Simulated scan of single mutants.
Amino acid sequence: MSKLRREDAVNADCPWSGEPISRDALTLYRGHVVGFCNPGCRDKFERATAAFDQAIGE
């Protein structure tokens, strides 16, 4: 996987905290780079979306 870049993110601020996104807190979701203020917020998003994606798929 290629390195995710902050400038490719669909958002400038973390959806959880409202703080600016950080280079070390990016993830790929449905083909788009999404940014968060820290890895903890990113990981919380990944857990939440995985749970919903699994529930929808069942």
Results as ranks from 00 to 15, higher is better:
Met1Ala: 15
Val34Ala: 01
Ala25Asn: 06
Cys37Leu: 07
Asp43Lys: 14
Ala25His: 05
Ala51Asp: 12
Asp8Trp: 04
Phe36His: 05
Asn11Ala: 07
Trp16Cys: 03
Asp43Glu: 15
Ile21Val: 09
Ala50Ser: 15
Arg5Ala: 14
Asn38Lys: 02
Arg47Glu: 13
Met1Gln: 14
Ser2His: 13
Phe36Ala: 00
Cys41Glu: 06
Cys14Arg: 07
Gly31Ser: 05
Ala12Thr: 10
Arg5Asp: 10
Gly40Asp: 05
Ala9Gln: 03
Arg47Gly: 05
Asp24Cys: 01
Tyr29Cys: 06
His32Tyr: 13
Met1Gly: 15
Gly35Pro: 01
Leu4His: 09
Lys3His: 12
Ile56Thr: 12
His32Leu: 11
Arg47Ile: 12
Thr49Asn: 13
Arg23Asn: 10
Arg47Trp: 06
Arg5His: 11
Ala12Asp: 10
Glu46Met: 13
Arg23Cys: 05
Ile56Cys: 11
Asp53Gly: 11
Arg30Met: 13
Ser22Thr: 11
Met1Asn: 08
Leu28Phe: 02
Glu19Met: 05
Leu26Tyr: 01
Gly31Ile: 03
Lys44Met: 07
Ala48Val: 11
Asp24Met: 01
Ala48Ile: 15
Ala50Gln: 15
Gly18Asp: 03
Asn38Val: 05
Val34Gln: 04
Ile56Pro: 02
Ala9Ile: 02
Thr49Gly: 05
Asn38Ser: 06
Lys3Thr: 13
Trp16His: 08
Asp43His: 09
Arg47Ser: 10
Ala55Glu: 12
Ile21Glu: 04
Ala51Arg: 13
Asp24Asn: 10
Thr49Val: 08
Asp13Trp: 05
Ala25Ser: 09
Ser2Gly: 08
Arg42Phe: 04
Asn38Asp: 10
Gln54Trp: 11
Arg23His: 08
Ser2Tyr: 12
Arg6Ser: 06
Asn11Pro: 00
Phe45Lys: 00
His32Ile: 04
Val33Arg: 00
Asn38Gln: 06
Arg47Thr: 14
Pro20Asp: 03
Arg6Leu: 15
Gly40Trp: 07
Gly31Cys: 06
Thr49Pro: 02
Ile21Gly: 03
Arg6Val: 11
Lys3Gln: 14
Ala12Gly: 07
Pro20Glu: 01
Thr49Tyr: 04
Tyr29Lys: 06
Gly31Pro: 05
Glu46Cys: 08
Asn11Lys: 04
Arg30Val: 09
Gln54Asp: 13
Phe36Asn: 00
Asn11Ile: 01
Ala25Pro: 03
Ser17Thr: 14
Arg30Ile: 04
Val34Tyr: 02
Leu26Pro: 00
Glu19Lys: 09
Ala48Phe: 07
Asp24Leu: 02
Phe45Asn: 01
Ser17Tyr: 05
Cys41Arg: 02
Leu4Phe: 07
Pro15Asn: 09
Lys3Ala: 14
Ser2Arg: 15
Ile21Ala: 01
Ala12Ser: 06
Ala55Tyr: 11
Asp43Pro: 07
Cys41Trp: 06
Asp24Thr: 03
Glu7Val: 11
Glu58Pro: 03
Cys14Gln: 01
Arg6Gln: 10
Ala55Trp: 03
Pro20Ala: 04
Glu46Ser: 13
Thr49Gln: 12
Asp8Asn: 08
Cys14Ile: 01
Lys3Glu: 15
Gly40Lys: 13
Glu46Gln: 14
Pro20Tyr: 04
Val34His: 03
Leu4Gly: 10
Lys44Cys: 11
Gln54Asn: 12
